[in-house]
Amino acid sequence: MLITRFYSIFVPLNTQLMSALIKSSLARKVVMALSGLFLVFFLGQHFVINVTSVIAPDTFNSWSHFMGYNPLVQYVLQPILILGVIVHFVMGFMLELQNRAARGGVKYASYKGSANASWISRNMLISGAVVLAFLGLHFYDFWFPEMTYKYFGDNPENATRYLEETVHKFEPIWRTVLYIISFVLLALHLLHGFASSFQTMGVNNKYSSAIKTFTKVYAIAIPLGFILIAIYHHLNPITH
């Protein structure tokens, strides 16, 4: 009885939401905003762990080990995170294609976009593409080796290996520079995207200026923090 009632409410609601998602521009924007907010939240959590690599190496090792071997993190949160990235990227790309089509076949002979909107807000695709390319490098650097270590071959659990592996990655200057450039672009992406997601969610009220200030500080402080950590590890290699 309860199950029937659940289905009678949930299934039509779900179908309705799914159909709205495909058809409605506003629903697609919500997906962009919510997946973006989720990724912003994840970024903060990632940053907190990375900070410990500088100020408390043992904590960094134990937290990294926890994240790497906790089943909830590995089998639930990690797939959700990857799905979040994919949804944000695919939806962003789809919206961009639709937006270009909406402009029509003939382009303006003269179009002064800078007169009424910031470069950052007009070029989210560029900053987003750089961040996505960076994710490719980041996965190549950390995620694939980690998956290989854990799930392929007979490697023992070692809760003290993480810091050295991380610091080692920042020895080449080219990688450190690529990380810095990517984080600058990430900061630009967040400067528009973070505050923008609240506007999309319908929040434009007396709290909006506080939200805007918070998002701007976050958008600059977190990527800057990542940059400083990368530079710190580049300048302080672990030698035996």
Binding site: K23, S24, S25, L26, R28, K29, L95, Q98, N99, A101, A102, R103, G113, N116, A117, S118, S121, R122, M124, H192, S196, Q199, T200
Partner: peptide, 17 residues
């Protein structure tokens, strides 16, 4: 909103232009 979508207008990206 449905009619707006049918007409083929693009999606808002909050540029503020």
């Amino acid at each position: 909103v449905r009619q707006m979508d049918i007409e083929g207008f693009g999606n808002c990206t909050n540029t503020g232009a």
